[in-house]
Simulated scan of single mutants.
Amino acid sequence: MSVELPPIVLSEAAHRFELVVDGHMAYEEFERFPGGIAYLHTIVPKALEGRGIGSALAKHIMDYAVRNHLKVRPDCPFVKAYIDKHPEYQAISLAHGAK
């Protein structure tokens, strides 16, 4: 089941990708490093849980890394678990053997 979500916005100033749904903000905190991006923490408010918001964020941030030729350091357990389940992203994940 695919749900139509508002666009996910990159906020460089806040160091996060943000998604506002029904007045609640879900986001992924990140920090950049030379040649890559570290995904630090995924926040999905309780009101948005169970709607695929976290997975939509994870897919978006991983696609962002692919498009921008960035290695990913998945410090966030949610993002690491997402990569575990989606092998197409493992080649850019430092936790999955990327160099």
Rank of each mutant, 00 (worst) to 15 (best):
E29D: 15
I61R: 07
H15K: 15
I53W: 02
E49I: 04
F33N: 09
E18N: 06
V66C: 09
A47I: 00
E29L: 13
A13I: 14
A56K: 12
H69S: 08
H86E: 01
P34T: 12
L10A: 05
L5E: 10
Y27D: 13
V44M: 10
E28F: 13
G52T: 08
L70W: 04
G52I: 02
F78A: 11
R51L: 06
L10I: 08
H15P: 12
K80G: 02
H24K: 07
R67E: 15
I83D: 13
G54A: 08
P34N: 02
I83G: 08
I61K: 02
A38I: 03
A95H: 08
G97E: 03
E88C: 11
G52V: 14
D63Y: 14
S2K: 14
P87I: 07
Y82A: 11
A14Y: 07
K80S: 13
P77R: 03
V20A: 12
A95L: 05
V21G: 09
F33D: 06
M25I: 11
I92Q: 00
L10V: 14
H41D: 12
M25N: 07
E31K: 15
L40I: 15
R32W: 02
A95K: 14
P45A: 05
P45L: 03
E28S: 02
I37T: 04
G36N: 06
C76Y: 00
G23E: 03
H96R: 01
L10S: 00
E29H: 08
H96F: 11
G35F: 00
D84Y: 09
V20E: 06
L48M: 02
A58T: 13
L5S: 01
P74F: 06
A81Q: 10
K99W: 05
K71T: 10
M62E: 00
A98H: 06
M1R: 03
F17R: 04
A56H: 14
I83R: 02
L48R: 11
E4W: 09
E18K: 13
K46R: 14
G54Y: 10
P77L: 05
M1W: 11
E12H: 06
I37G: 00
I92M: 11
V44P: 02
H86D: 03
M25P: 04
Y39T: 04
H60E: 05
I43P: 09
S2N: 12
P77E: 10
R73E: 15
M62F: 09
E28A: 14
E18P: 01
I83P: 00
Y64R: 12
C76V: 11
A58F: 01
M1V: 07
L70I: 00
G35L: 07
G97P: 07
P45G: 14
P6H: 10
M25H: 12
K46V: 14
Y27N: 15
K59T: 15
G36E: 08
L40N: 14
F33G: 01
Y64W: 02
G52E: 01
D84C: 07
D63C: 09
I43F: 15
I8C: 06
I8P: 08
L94V: 01
I61H: 04
P7W: 03
N68M: 09
K59F: 14
L40E: 12
H41P: 10
D63N: 13
I61E: 09
I92K: 01
G36C: 13
